[in-house]
Every structure is written in structure tokens, then in C-alpha cells.
Write a protein that binds this DNA or RNA. Structure first.
Lengths: 234, 234
DNA sequence: TTGACACGGATTGTTAACAATCGTTTTACT
DNA sequence: AGTAAAACGATTGTTAACAATCCGTGTCAA
């Protein structure tokens, strides 16, 4: 279970995981907007798989709250409402500060290296104003903190929460440029490097609250789908 | 997304969820031991569904780490190893104390009522020495604390963690009677009722550590594959 | 013009047949 | 007898055809 299927080189499980990962990434970097329809045929053609695997992938995505399956209508990228947003942020504020704290306690040199490299990538992306890359990396930082903790369960959980956060931001983001003032990530990393557990935890909580405060639930939700063919597998 | 399928009275989604829920429950109360094979035909007959739904349910269970799918071999109830156990307990210790703390802060009368009723059920089951019921209720208490918090995401997460804990206990439980000294649940509830956030959180952490300490990773694991094969000598 | 109704195309849901794989048993050979 | 190869049975994986449902369109009548 821990190491799942090392020798499954062409197995169906990996196929489905690839599809799921790809769609996760697309959602995380807001290349797939809420409400976008993901028809079975689209998935089949994009990834060169049969209908069965496409449907299984969509089922997995639905079980993770990334897409919504409607009977006889198909799969759509999920449209979180305010209640969903509250849930996601509450969960993140429950989980992430203590995760960052743990990282500050027990991270090793290699972990620090990984996070530093990531921060550099973020800076680079921000300089070149590559919006999608900025968004993707910004979310991935949080997943990476879980990854370096070495806990696969928490990593998966964070991945789901971060991806759903992307959808929430796509729905309710105020769009103000302040949205991504991500020197906060750098400060968090500094606190981790300084082994300052309290500060790492506190900065993480504040960071999450900043993201939440940038949401605007009063305005009509942006939810209109642009037809997307960005999924083509290679 | 929030309101998911109000009118799906006989939909396939509900069918699969029913199967998944049933197997979750069976695992949680240790009616399904690790390594148990869950063949498609078994599921089909047990639940009166077609092979498709059975396979989809198994896929969902696999994505939650409750069963393991092996290529061309079928689905088996998962056999967590020590690393899995560490992950699960680490995750629980990250999540549950702060959840209980939040409950102590913000639980309402109805929530307290729910928890009190549950504690009574636990007492009753312990008096009548109904082992499966004791185990089931004991795990369910933790899920219930998440439920009364009103956060569906955390509830699902806890449900998964608790179920996997059941598998871990089935694999590595020392079997000593001390295993289920569940006045601890009662104490936690008392702390919640007293709005004693610190104490509720601390008791929860200690409770989880007690469960963990009752594990024994040195002995040969029950349901070890080799053992099983040896047993069928006759 | 507008509304209701019915039809047609497209998409999803289901079933059943087929293919591939694994474990076991049988068989053949030393 | 013992070992190894081959055939069998059972189970899973995949595909394709079929059924059911939904959505848009067109027609007709008020």
C-alpha cells in the first residue's frame, strides 16, 4: 500500500492517475475554469484512452470534489459555493499551521533545499509575469510543505485542498493584484529555516487568512466556461 | 456541489456510495479483516448491482486506501504496514486535537446532545460486551466530533483516517484488554462541555497516543500473506 | 410572437460478450 | 518420485453494442 505499484508500467491504474493528475494540475493553475464541461469523449481523445478509463478518472475526480457528476449530463469542473469555501479554508487552517510547525521542527537539509528551489521558481515566475505559472507554483508550495513532511496522506489531503482553493479563487477572487503577494511564502520558509516553530505556524495561518480575505462573495460569480482544449496529452 | 444529489433517489452515484459506506462500516467494526479478498462477483451478489458499479465502488475504496487493487488479481482489504500506521497517526494527531478544541469552543446544544447520546451507546455496548459494536462506536466517536463541527471535508477525512486505524489495529493491535478503555471519550466530552479548549485538545492527543502505544509492530503481523498461505497446508 | 409539444442528435449509463492474466492442476519427462 | 512445462478454470480488464436520458430545434396552434 505504501509503495503502490512499482512495476505497473502500463497498468490502468497509472493511466487513470495520469489523467487525474493532469486535470488536478490544470485546475490548480486555473487553466480549467469552474463549470467547464469535461465530456467523456474529450477525455478519451485528449489522453488516448477508452471510455472506461475516462469515466473512472472522472469518478475519482468527483470523489475528491474537483468535478461534479450530474446524472445523464456529464462531468463539470466543480463550482464551489461560499459554504464550500468556508469548509476548505477551515480545514486548511486546521491542518496547515501545525504542518508548517512540524516542518520547522524536523525538516532536514534536503527538504530545505527543495523548498528554497521552489521559492526561487516562484520569484522567477513572478518576474516574468507568467500568471498561470505563478498560480500553480503558489499553490504547490503548500503541497510541498506537506511533501517534505514525508506524510503521503497529508500530502494528498493538501493537494485536494489546494486544488479546491484554486476553484474557489476562480469563483470569488477579487482579482486585485494583492492576490498574490507571495513574499509570504518566503517569510514562512525563513521561519522554517530559523526553526522558529511558533512563527512558522503563525505566518501560515495569517497567509491563509489573507487569501481568504481576498475573496468577495457579494459579487456575481464568474463561472462562464471558455471551451478548453488545453488538455491534449503531449 | 454543496447540495449534491437531492433528487437522485435511485441514481448510480448513490448505489456506489451505499456500497462504499457499507464496506467502510464493515472495516471500521473489524468485520472485514485485512487481506480479505473482495471479488467483483461477491460485491455484485451482496449488493445486487452490476459489475460496473462494483468495480467503481472498489476504485473509490482503493482511492481512499481502504482496499488495494492488484492488477488482474482483484481487490483486497488493505494491509497497512508500520509506515502507513505512522502516517495515519501523525495525520490524526495533526488534525483531531484542534478539531476537538474547536468543538469545545463552538459546539451548540444539539451537538452536545448528539455526543452525549453517542457516549451512552458506547457505555451500553461495553456493558453488553458486544465487541464489534464497541469497536464501531469507538471509532465513530471521532468521526462524530468532526460531524458536529459541521465541516464535511474534515468529516470525510476523519472517516478515512478512523477506518484505516481500524485496519491498523487489526494488523498490529496488542489485543490486550486495555485496548478499549473508553472512558477517555467520556472525559473528552466532559472537557468539551466545560468549554475547556486546552484540556479537550490535550485529552484528544493523549487518547490517540494511547491507541498508538497499544500497537505492537514487533510481532508477526496477523494476516501476513505467508502465514495465510501456510495455513492452507491442509 | 409566444408557448407547448414532439422529434432528432448527442451524450451518458448499462449490459454483455470478448480478451488477457493469474493460480492451480494436470501431465509428461528425467 | 520429483520437477517443469502445458492446459484448464476462474477472475479481472477491455471493448463494443445497446438503452436511456437530456438538450436543442422545429413545428404548430393559440
Amino acid at each position: 500500500m505504501a509503495v503502490r505499484h512499482i512495476h505497473d508500467t502500463k497498468s490502468s491504474l497509472n493511466d487513470e492517475h495520469k489523467i487525474v493528475d493532469r486535470i488536478y494540475s490544470a485546475v490548480m493553475q486555473q487553466a480549467l475554469a469552474p463549470m467547464t464541461k469535461l465530456s467523456e469523449s474529450t477525455i478519451c481523445e485528449s489522453f488516448g484512452v477508452g471510455r472506461m478509463k475516462a469515466r473512472r478518472a472522472l469518478l475519482l475526480l468527483a470523489s475528491r470534489g474537483i468535478v461534479e457528476l450530474r446524472s445523464n449530463r456529464g462531468a463539470f469542473v466543480a463550482c464551489p459555493d461560499q459554504k464550500d469555501a468556508d469548509e476548505v479554508f477551515e480545514a486548511r487552517i486546521h491542518i496547515e499551521p501545525s504542518l508548517t510547525a512540524k516542518a520547522a521542527e524536523s525538516i532536514d537539509e534536503q527538504g530545505l533545499e527543495t523548498l528554497n528551489e521552489h521559492i526561487n521558481k516562484e520569484k522567477q515566475a513572478r518576474q516574468s509575469e507568467n500568471r498561470q505559472e505563478i498560480i500553480r507554483l503558489s499553490g504547490e508550495f503548500h503541497v510541498l510543505v506537506a511533501t517534505v513532511s514525508g506524510n503521503a496522506f497529508l500530502t494528498r489531503t493538501l493537494r485536494e485542498l489546494v486544488t479546491r482553493t484554486s476553484l474557489i479563487v476562480a469563483m470569488f477572487g477579487s482579482g486585485r493584484p494583492s492576490c498574490c503577494r507571495d513574499d509570504e511564502h518566503e517569510q514562512i520558509l525563513e521561519a522554517i529555516e530559523a526553526r522558529n516553530v511558533k512563527r512558522a505556524s503563525k505566518l501560515t495561518r495569517e497567509h491563509l487568512e489573507h487569501i481568504r480575505l481576498d475573496l468577495d462573495f457579494t459579487r456575481p460569480h464568474k463561472a462562464e466556461p471558455d471551451l478548453v482544449n488545453l488538455l491534449r496529452a503531449d
